[in-house]
């Protein structure tokens, strides 16, 4: 574990250096990333300009959810690039063999090899928006709340990582690759809004099939004092653990398939 941690720090510092070597590219990427975040928040602000509430949720509540959702999403995005481009970069361009030639678990190598540092922007902006909206809502932060915030940020990121590891594993089995990532990536949007507005069917899918509801919405009800979701509110770490195990199992199966079919 300590070796993995020191290794990760090594990789992280190196990719930081490598990114900063092309300063213009880095700034351009940071700008692009900031714009994407801003556009999403701006949509919520514009939406509430002419409407009183969203299915019973006030502007500050929705902004709180939206901001909070960016925290696990940002952590996830530090690692997500290699998962998202896994099929093209590693399978089609043949880099995966090199991972197999190194004495380390392949998934750990994959997550480490390239970091997207601009994603830290999402964590910062999201936290800022959530704190601002929380202040407007008059939320008081106890030590337990802060602890829960940390747990949710990490667990939520784990859920996202697990889901996209599973999708990346599919590239071991199917010739036609990257396709599934895009629609599931778009599903993340649903997790930024109050889940009940999406109706029972979609709500069930987002809770029990692709558990994006547990990334932000359910745990956030703890802060918003919406007691209707008391039972699911604290399940996030459990869902994260379950999906992490599932993700590892599917990945292992995928690697086994790759090594036995040689595709």
């Amino acid at each position: 574990m300590r070796r993995v941690l020191s290794l990760y720090t090594g990789f992280f510092v190196q990719s930081l250096k490598a990114r900063l070597a092309y300063r213009a590219d880095f700034l351009s990427e940071l700008f692009a990333s900031l714009l994407a975040t801003a556009a999403g928040i701006l949509f919520v602000v514009l939406l509430f300009h002419r409407i009183p509430d969203l299915g019973g949720w006030r502007r500050e509540e929705v902004l709180f959810l939206y901001g909070l959702s960016l925290v696990p999403y940002g952590i996830f995005n530090i690692f997500s690039i290699n998962l998202y481009e896994f099929a093209d970069r590693y399978i089609i361009e043949g880099r995966f063999d090199r991972l197999l030639l190194r004495p380390m678990p392949t998934l750990a190598q994959l997550l480490m090899e390239r970091s997207r540092l601009t994603a830290l922007q999402e964590v910062a902006v999201g936290l800022g928006v959530a704190l601002w909206a929380g202040a407007r809502l008059g939320l008081a932060w106890s030590a337990v709340d802060l602890l829960w915030l940390g747990v949710v940020a990490v667990s939520g990121a784990v859920i996202l990582l697990a889901v996209f590891s599973i999708l990346a594993s599919l590239s071991f089995f199917f010739e036609d690759r990257i396709g599934v990532n895009a629609p599931v990536w778009n599903l993340i949007q649903f997790g930024r809004f109050p889940l009940p507005i999406f109706g029972p069917w979609l709500g069930a899918v987002l809770s029990w099939v692709i558990p994006f509801g547990f990334v932000t919405f359910y745990p956030a009800t703890h802060f918003l004092g919406r007691s209707a979701f008391r039972t699911l509110c604290y399940a996030t770490p459990l869902v994260a653990a379950a999906f992490a195990l599932l993700g590892l199992a599917v990945w292992t199966l995928g690697v086994r398939g790759y090594r036995s079919t040689g595709s």
Partner: peptide
């Protein structure tokens, strides 16, 4: 072929996000 089907799915998901948001409004 998979990319094709998921392309259709992506658009459907995008429409549904905004469909449900407006429905909630």
């Amino acid at each position: 072929r998979l990319r094709y089907v998921t392309g259709i799915l992506t658009y459907t998901i995008n429409v549904s996000v905004y469909y449900f948001i407006w429905r909630a409004v």
